[in-house]
Design a protein around this nucleic acid. Structure first.
Lengths: 101, 101
DNA sequence: ACGATAGGCAAGCGATCACTTGCCTGTCAA
DNA sequence: TTGACAGGCAAGTGATCGCTTGCCTATCGT
């Protein structure tokens, strides 16, 4: 039962899984990667997940607004969007720690 | 089965729960709050959780290094520590977004 | 046209999570 | 010293999570 929602629940829960974090890492390098591309990249970095598993992870990331999905022919291209992370960067910092912009 | 761990798994999983995030919010205001103090503060902000539930949440936060617990008489005092969040603030930002320190 | 490629849908399963419940321990004030 | 206060421990439960499985759809090259 979710009594209070700070409006960022989907973002935080999306970040809670190491495979999803690895997917974000992979997407920092380049936008527009396909599902298969990300699958092989995950396999290269030691993440052994099936295509369906990775697809579901990307769905969660997309629902959180961290990844945008666009279709191009039979390809599903993924773009990273870090704007949902920005408010997260200042939260829980005390005034004296907010020395950046 | 956790194949890859980026070394921050406990931190991210600790942040995945809205009650735990609310506890961090409460601790930003002041260090050294007791369990009961945090319980009433949670109740005031609309989080309806039992003492045991909140205690368990604080344990998770402590395991992640986000909260430090010290004993004083029959009180259990909690201090916030945001240093585990610092590496998190730069991850997934593209080079052109890293304009702060 | 047809096989291969890229991806989608949904049911099911085991593991984990958040929480409750019941009882116990330690500390303080009177 | 004794009762109230602050917290601890651990088993149990229902819900959610991550993932698999099996099958289906759509798009491309030849």
């Amino acid at each position: 039962m979710l009594v209070v929602d700070d409006g960022q629940d989907e973002v935080f829960r999306a970040l809670a899984d190491p495979t999803r974090r690895a997917l974000l890492d992979a997407l920092v390098a380049r936008d527009g990667q396909t599902l298969f591309e990300l699958c092989t990249r995950m396999a290269d970095t030691g993440v052994t997940s099936s295509r369906q598993a990775i697809s579901q992870h990307l769905d969660v990331l997309a629902a959180a607004g961290l990844v945008h999905v666009r279709r191009q022919g039979r390809y599903r291209l993924h773009d990273l969007d870090t704007t949902p992370l920005l408010p997260l960067r200042r939260r829980w910092l005390r005034p004296d720690e907010r020395t950046d912009r």
